[in-house]
Design a protein around this nucleic acid. Structure first.
Lengths: 241, 241
DNA sequence: GCAAAAGTGTTGAATCTACACCCATGC
DNA sequence: GCATGGGTGTAGATTCAACACTTTTGC
């Protein structure tokens, strides 16, 4: 907003701002990963009193001279060691009583990462673990809501943007991609229809290699071609799975 | 977040919070209305120095004991006199330099209202005017971005939720509804296909009245049946236009 | 040789798009 | 009686969902 956009009776900017409240602003990250056929969430077990033993998302306060999304990236880096992670703002949680005893709002962000990329030691040193959505324990504060809402956004977005690829290694097989979408939407997909659909988008490049980890026969590896995707977008196309 | 979710080396909650920064938190409202076949935006012309004459969205600071969405509702009420307005959180704007000279983040909300419902005198007393999207003047700060993003969200949401009805009077005609969607998506729709589609959703109730304001022949009035819509939702349906 | 996953095509149903004319009424 | 917007149906193209068998290979 601008000073006096709602009320115009103030005399100077300085007075106008000074007469209002300041709040703690935090950011919390809902970090999704994909491994072993399952969509997982990186959560953190507090290991000091008080509240030792309660699981929560990873977060931090936003500093006075720091962009909010910069704060979220800082958190991600601190926890995973990675700088280039796909991240989107999810939603802001602003209930006055959401953090008992303090007035603190939180701007939640969700992130998508390849589980194998990150620095496991660093993660573990923070007491963080990957949990599947099914096994997720109760989380602190309104973090439960944050996870629900972020999953909701992820599902919606995955329908019209190829963000699924952020969760897979650079080279992946079609069955892997299918398992990923199955675990995002929590329902089974038909392998024939799925393959047909993703290939019809023409944003995958078939490689001359096979991945044999999933079967004896092995499955061809593909990679995502973001240039072709850009072309698609510019010609008005809409990615849908 | 919770204290020590990112770093665990602090001694007590009090110290932990106190060692961090507090920021101004504002909310800005992107208020959409529909009138005269056009989607419009309620914007505000500052009439006092400094910056007199610059258009901006309506906003306010969030008070220390107030929910963020409560603050947005307060703004809406102050400006329009209305309490029951459809409102959604849009996005949080948190660049450190977005408001030069102050550290202030803003949680934008968009609202949908029936233009004729509101208190015109109250609105005018705040220096607010309705502008079509095409005629929109340059706005202060990052308000331009806020409008773009909110319109984006509105378009997406209008595809799977019947929020269009929030912008129309209780009783409306199919041609009116079509004009609304045309002005949201800024493209023309085929009247036969449009009618077919909205009626196939079976959430409209045809009334025995006609509206003759648009033509000599008159068009039948309909109303939105939110009970039928609930049933649809519960049976797993997805509203799409 | 068999278990286990990869890969492949077709058909009917549903949905989408494009398109042109008559209707009712106020003037 | 004519101008104006309201209302209606169809055909072809596209997309979607459902469905079963063959291939490859490590063991």
């Amino acid at each position: 907003m601008t000073p006096s956009s709602a009320s115009t009776a103030h005399t100077s900017n300085t007075d106008f701002y000074a007469s209002h409240d300041k709040l703690y602003v935090a950011t919390d990250c809902i970090i999704f990963g994909f491994d072993d056929g399952d969509l997982k969430l990186l959560i953190f077990k507090r290991r000091v009193e008080p509240d030792s033993g309660i699981w929560s998302l990873i977060g931090s306060f936003v500093k006075i001279d720091e962009d909010v999304d910069e704060a979220a990236r800082r958190v991600l880096k601190e926890i995973t060691g990675l700088e280039e992670i796909y991240m989107e703002q999810s939603k802001t949680y602003g209930k006055a009583e959401r953090d008992p005893g303090h007035r603190c709002i939180s701007v939640a962000h969700y992130a998508l990462m390849r589980i194998n990329d990150h620095d496991r030691e660093l993660t573990q040193s923070h007491g963080a673990f990957w949990y599947t959505l099914q096994e997720l324990p109760r989380l602190a504060l309104d973090h439960q809501d944050m996870v629900r809402d972020a999953l909701d956004k992820l599902r919606r977005r995955a329908r019209y943007q190829p963000i699924g690829f952020e969760l897979l290694p650079e080279k992946f097989t079609i069955p892997q991609l299918q398992k990923l979408y199955e675990s995002i939407y929590q329902r089974e997909l038909d392998p024939r229809n799925f393959r047909k659909k993703v290939l019809s988008l023409k944003v995958l490049v078939k490689l001359d290699e096979k991945d044999k980890s999933g079967s004896k026969r092995g499955a061809y590896l593909y990679r995502f071609d973001s240039e072709k995707y850009q072309e698609l977008l510019e010609s008005g196309y809409n990615f849908e799975i």
